[in-house]
Design a protein around this nucleic acid. Sequence first.
DNA 1: AACCCGGGGGG
DNA 2: CCCCCAGGGTT
Length: 349
Amino acid sequence: MKADFTQNLLEWNDFHNSRALPWKGETNPYKVWLSEIILQQTRVEQGLAYYQRFIEKYPDIHYLAKAPDEEVYKLWEGLGYYSRCKNLIETARLISASHHGHFPNTYAEILKLKGIGPYTAAAIASFAFKEKRAVVDGNVQRVLSRYFGITTPVDTTEGKKLFSGIAQALIDENAPAAYNQAIMDFGATICKPRNPLCNICVQADDCEAFRNNFVNDVPVKQKVMKIKTRWLYYFIIETNDGVYIRKREEKDIWQNLHEFVLLESHEEITDPHNIFLGKLLQHQSYKILSRSDVHTQQLTHQRINGRFYRVGLTGKISLGKNYKYVKKINLHGYAFPRFINSYLEKEFY
DNA sequence: AACCCGGGGGG
DNA sequence: CCCCCAGGGTT
């Protein structure tokens, strides 16, 4: 069984895999690591430009370690899952300082690093250090569940153990890196989530799901997360040349990114400024300069709705220590969530 | 084990 | 509108 699957895969890789990516064949652990963090739960097409910008700005791990937090977040801005950026910075500084810039070179040691789990540790260990350690990502789960006809949910403890065991049994002894790269390319280009190319698949003869016609029913996933709706009313309190912003510190979406003065609700509010600005600005005189249409953004597990109000002030005020007064010209130096940036780009700048 | 964390593209 | 993406961390 293994011989067939692995042999066919590597043969396909040699003669029919034309996928070209900048990090393919890369053995520099820093570059492998960076690419893998960027690609976590992220499409290759989306991550590619980010990877190139990071490599350009931070050619090695010491450059990244020395960079100010805000600069790195700004470079990560728009990519999502911002804890990846936080862990990226922490790990870079740890390796730069404590390991003299030398990346740990075994799966077990790599796995201890922040932001690195089983998949990423296996990827770095195999690509950079040729360790025989099979990767299990969404592609691998899909390929294996179809080929072997596995209906165990992939997102359970049992499923994770099952798939990592099978993957490790299938990996090629002599070419672990090539095998790992090949199975992910195969999953991304042939054994795709929807409309897989079974008609030209070199594994089709031995594929359980194809032979029994349930290719579209695997892999099985268990978790169904309910989507909650949030209403965010942002007040851009501004003077002639500055605005007030704060960093989101709480455990919530967009942690460590910036925002304006916020009134949040679980449902729509007709005139949010009436109940809010009076209290916030006390005796200050202010003027509502504009009110945006309702903006929306659909996240995986939340639906964000909201409006943006520009509020004019004659002079500076104090909104507490959480808020910073920033000149409008310098807003570009701070990282904002997409929800805010899309407003700024269209209606503010 | 259950829940949380973004944003984009395809059907 | 729903699903998925070179997953990982926290509770």
